[in-house]
Design a protein around this nucleic acid. Sequence first.
DNA 1: GTGAAAGCGCTAACAT
DNA 2: ATGTTAGCGCTTTCAC
Lengths: 338, 338
Amino acid sequence: MEKVTIKKLAEELNLSASTISRALQDSYQIGSQTKQRVLERAAQLNYVPNYHASGLRKKVSKTIAVVIPEVADSFFAQAINGIEAVAQDSGFHVLIYLTHESSAKEQAILKEFQNGRVDGVLLSITAETTHYNYIQELITRGIPLVLFDRVCEDMLTTKITTNDFESSYLATKHLMDCGCHSIALLSASNSLAISKNRLAGYKQALTDRGRHFKENIVVECSKIEGKNYLLIKELLSRPDRPDGIMATVEKQATSIYQVCRELNLPIPEKVKVVGFSNLQSAAYLNPALTTITQPAFAMGKAAATSLFKALKRTNGSIVAESQVLSSVLHVRDSTCRL
Amino acid sequence: MEKVTIKKLAEELNLSASTISRALQDSYQIGSQTKQRVLERAAQLNYVPNYHASGLRKKVSKTIAVVIPEVADSFFAQAINGIEAVAQDSGFHVLIYLTHESSAKEQAILKEFQNGRVDGVLLSITAETTHYNYIQELITRGIPLVLFDRVCEDMLTTKITTNDFESSYLATKHLMDCGCHSIALLSASNSLAISKNRLAGYKQALTDRGRHFKENIVVECSKIEGKNYLLIKELLSRPDRPDGIMATVEKQATSIYQVCRELNLPIPEKVKVVGFSNLQSAAYLNPALTTITQPAFAMGKAAATSLFKALKRTNGSIVAESQVLSSVLHVRDSTCRL
DNA sequence: GTGAAAGCGCTAACAT
DNA sequence: ATGTTAGCGCTTTCAC
């Protein structure tokens, strides 16, 4: 069974290659009975148009890339879901890249996107990323890029985020309402805008209640597996141990539960916990985890939708049509028993 | 800033296109000082080889596809992690496709892979998939395909699975050891091999203990969101309500917890639960969930590794070098309080 | 060690 | 409504 190409079809049907091509694309120039014949024969011979050939010719790939720190996180898993839904609708394919919080890896990945493999990019930057020229470069070269969740604030492109300041402000206030006097903040990074916003909301809440901010109670998380557990253990072993924790990264929550169990610190009696988390099982944890839940699926959809819009514009330019979606605070037992 | 191609480089350096091409590929035919010059200038001009052009010429895409039912499941998320790790090592790119348990979608996706977009495929079939000709077809056409977790048993290709029969056997015995007399099985599908194996292990365990098998206590799950909750609620509302449940799909576990809470059926006192699950938080659920945990990351790695091996063989043929990895039973409070 | 030329499979002017 | 031609950017014979 040899490869079926347009040329082959052309011979078979005594037509020219261009006629075949046009018929397959349902061009208005082609007579309907000819179309019929072509389509029929193509189906019979199981003709499949060569991806690279048309891609080379048309300079499109019908592919977008999703570049994220990791997948084993409900937020990103749900976001991918949203992205994939929109992509499948638009006939686009989705490449996944995991940076594992390595800025160098991120840079290498984006750099390669100049080769025509992808038409657009959805990016959630690493906790390490501090300079953005390689991202800007990609946009300059005509590859639309939409940032989501972990964005670079000063970049001129669409950004899909959540109301991180408010969420964090609300969560911190909630912890104080529940009686916390010393609230620790587990942060993803010192440099990420999202982290800064969450930190700012946290500080504002303290200020509004006349509390003062203690530097040493903000813990920047490590990307090294297992290291966070130790950082949390250290935090909760201090003589002036905090009585509240806000974890801004999903997976920190389980580490906190683990440490509290080991140190015999009942939640919420000794330590109250709120986590930024999209875990389906949050309500069934022991104790049920109070969460800030982001609209992950919707964010994925919004980011992808915006990207495809840019892709449809002939010039491919991205109008910065950023959106801020709202997270929801779900109060559960980890902050106050009912 | 105009597009830099090999042709452009050739002009700049007064060399032919072929020389440039060879130099960039570090061909032995090219003098080292020439190579130097080419590489230098290419870097200066930020030359990036066109993906479609080389793909068309060489008939490779350096891309694999991962086709799975969903991402929002720890098993698949972890598997993707493993796959991506191997792929990045080998310089391959990873496309993700979600079938959402639709066999038709799966078929459409695989069909398109005949176009040269991917060099190989990793597949975990839908619960609906019953005929496999379109999968076999792909392999026949020279696209290596490795099945993982949800495999088609009678297909001649590499299959990466876990010891589902034994795991299920073990879990069922464990439930009986904990005092269960009537154990329900929540199954993913009646047709999937993996489900059949888990069912078989379950039945065997019953038989070995002289219990007899009741048809109506096996519930086939629906792919409709929310429907499973109702099925479980019906199950646990029966007069002859089971006192044990084995959930073979991860997300069923939270539905069970929800239903038990609503019906005021304490776990494990009234109902004991074991779930096939890779949830990181299983140990922190209320009560801690007894799980069968699959080596998801390792399975992803194994599947990808096997695929790349096939890709390296010039003929691309897949030697069926299937592997069966072992799952682990983690006994926790949902089956017996310590 | 380097160049010329052909062609991967498709599409899009430009004819007619 | 259909055919002719050129070319996307690269690789790879084949020649020198």
